[in-house]
Design a protein around this nucleic acid. Sequence first.
DNA 1: TCTGGGGTCCTAGGACCC
DNA 2: TCTGGGGTCCTAGGACCC
Length: 420
Amino acid sequence: MYALIDCNNFYASCERVFRPELRGKPIVVLSNNDGCVIARSNEAKEVGVPMGALAHEYEPLFLEKGVHVFSANFALYGDLSNRIMSILQEYTPEIEIYSIDEAFLKLDGFKYVDLQIYGQEIRERVFMGTGIPISIGIAPTKALSKVANRIAKKFPEKTNACHIIDSDEKRIKALKWLKIGDVWGIGRQHEKRLIKVGVNNAFDLTQMNDNWIQQNLSIVGLRLKKDLEGIPSIQMDEIQPKKNIATTRSFERNLTEFSDIKERVTTFAVSCSEKLRKQQSECNAMMIFIHTNFHRKDLPQYSRNIVVKLPFPTNSSIELAKFATDGLKQIFKEGYRYKKAGVIIMNFSPEQQRQLSMFENSNHKHKGLMKIIDKINTNFGQQKIKLASQDLKRVWKMKQEKLSQRYTTRIEEILIIKAI
DNA sequence: TCTGGGGTCCTAGGACCC
DNA sequence: TCTGGGGTCCTAGGACCC
């Protein structure tokens, strides 16, 4: 059996951990730059805040309904996620961390264990250890455990937030209940196509012809169908090094000057190379993109990207910042108001087994230098050491007006309790 | 004024090899 | 009239996930 653990309204729940007075109150979390809503507590959903709601547009509703608004605090969410995952690891040797708030547990050899009781134990332990409420779905395949999890979430009273699909009867009932667009792996495009041929729920999908599925939804869709039938076809994935790493941001205001954008792109490249060194890889190519604000129909639009092939594999911040600047020079065009830029690095190779090039090589001194810089930045706070090409005293930054404290990762922001 | 950020996998088609 | 057969690798684009 597989168990899918999913945190309830994860970001909103994280904000509540250190603000217990907000339990039962509506909460929303905003995207970078406080642009739109990316997470909502159940109470916020009830008062009518949709996903992706524009913050400025919904300001009146927030005030009227007493919705508590937070800027995204990824330092906090990431740390709480790590804590939850390490608790989950105590319950099975085989775990797949699927996203920041989800994990699959493979429950092999649990034949004589009452899974409902086991599920309740996990829920209590995670809540005790972190203060985050979770829902659990248990079933013979991964896709079915996703379905079970949905039921657990939708009917918490009836299921005690843990639903198990362990008979064909339960499976079919669940599949008939689940709308096709809500099935894991069926997005907008597939949903449209399926409804057109009369597939309205997950059960209908399992009744379709294999050839049709493969032709229209590819092998991925066929695996999904089998999984929903109860034939395990989607495997557990181990944690693997990433194949791409990206740092992209919208700017708080439009940028027109090359030098401003160059500074941003340099910083993005440095951030990518830090992540790259963490997984001990080097990259062989890099993409840089810039574009204007797509939503402003009244302004001239410009959007371009460039892929730079590196002459040698590297993970040095200095080298990557230089290549990023070179790339930017080729795509930057004067006279536009830029809203967003990004750096994506790809084509990784392991740091250990590098192929030496006859003529061009990265500066071998960088390796030691980067190690020291990473160490200092870890110990003394991010960005203590920067490249001179980055803005050393950045005056403008992301809009984060409602940022909560990084309670669990910064000693100076730890929760203070006053005993009176 | 105002619209997030970070990933994965699959397929078709073209270039190239013998 | 008539023009082989079998591969691999790479890329762009499209779909999906949270």
